[in-house]
């Protein structure tokens, strides 16, 4: 007469249905919670993006200054003649300021042209005159200059230790020599910047964590009685946990992705007004920005799930009578 007891194994779809129904029936409340997560992640994402933009703008300034400096030297070398002509040889990888240099020279009225094949006659291809040869790139100081025309040669990466070469009439170094003190100062600056970034990210993470934990704790603890009722009606511990896991995944996903995108967008708009939009767009490192957005979104999901599942786990393990009594 005593019947067999089989424990219920609810399919995943039932849990999902309960969750979607739950979110729908308490839409207002869910939106508030989602908004809490969204704000937290927006903050986090905007802090990361702002840092990226600032670094990008500073890099951009440095690149521009460096290119200008090299252009100034070349200009002086050409004697400020109105029709100076520069033959450009690329050897190895170009850095950002080297990439800018030819365009910058052109803008200053100095003609540049690619001087790829060594021509002994002192002219470039098509018999063009060359006043100065510019060798750029990571391999520029090792570039074989034998057989080049007898004009001054400017090299972007030579150092003072390089022996002057007798076969070249004049070797101009465009490299800026950093004094040991300057080098040290720059290293210290970089170190400080790294510390500052770590610090800012840590603070942002803590603030975000607090915001999200607060939102989720509220949303779970105010439902302890409901969890007690659910357990009285036969919800298993696993079902309760699964319901809160799914719910926090949905809220964390929505708030995380939305917050990450909005935070980045707001930061770009803010700095756009500050520095000008082209400047900002130009200095953003897109792959890194994508990485930061992804990191923010994933942090949102993870923080939300952890902040919800932990109290829900406790509530689900409570005896129904205790959960019903709790008045949080």
């Amino acid at each position: 007469m005593a019947k067999k007891i089989e424990s219920v194994q609810l399919p995943f779809s039932v849990a999902l249905q309960i969750v979607t129904q739950g979110i729908r029936v308490r839409l207002g409340r869910s939106l508030v919670t989602l908004f809490g997560v969204l704000l937290g992640i927006m903050f986090f994402s905007s802090v990361l993006t702002s840092h990226l933009i600032k670094v990008g703008v500073a890099d951009e300034d440095r690149t521009r200054a460096e290119a200008n400096r090299m252009a100034n030297i070349l200009e002086a070398e050409l004697g400020y003649s109105m029709d100076g002509r520069v033959g450009v040889i690329v050897s190895g990888e170009l850095d950002a300021s080297e990439q800018r240099l030819p365009r910058l020279l052109t803008r200053r009225g100095i003609q540049t042209f690619a001087f790829d094949d060594p021509a002994p006659s002192g002219v470039g291809r098509d018999g063009e005159r060359v006043d100065i040869l510019l060798i750029m790139g990571s391999e520029s100081m090792n570039h074989d200059i034998s057989g080049l025309p007898q004009v001054p040669i400017a090299v972007t990466r030579s150092s003072s230790e390089d022996t002057p070469r007798a076969d070249v009439p004049m070797l101009v170094s465009l490299t800026r020599e950093l004094s040991p003190g300057e080098l040290e100062r720059r290293e210290a600056e970089e170190r400080t910047a790294r510390y500052r970034l770590t610090w800012i990210v840590a603070i942002a993470l803590v603030v975000t964590l607090m915001g999200i934990t607060n939102a989720m704790l509220m949303s779970v603890t105010e439902r302890f009685r409901e969890i007690g009722t659910m357990k009285c009606l036969g919800a298993t511990r696993r079902l309760v946990r699964r319901i809160f896991l799914l719910e926090s995944l949905i809220i964390g996903g929505g708030g995380g992705i939305g917050g990450a995108l909005l935070g980045a967008l707001f930061s770009i708009i803010f700095h756009g007004f500050l520095y000008g939009f082209p400047q900002v767009m130009f200095s953003i490192n897109l792959p890194v920005l994508m990485g930061f957005i992804l990191l923010s979104a994933v942090s949102g999901v993870v923080l939300t799930v952890v902040a919800a599942v932990y109290p829900a786990g406790i509530a689900s393990s409570m005896l129904p009578s205790d959960a019903l009594r709790s008045n949080v």
Binding site: I5, E6, S7, C232
Partner: peptide, 13 residues
């Protein structure tokens, strides 16, 4: 002697 799942079954049905 019932485990949590069995208790849930009991409360449910």
């Amino acid at each position: 002697q019932l485990d949590t799942e069995e208790l849930a079954w009991l409360r449910c049905r």
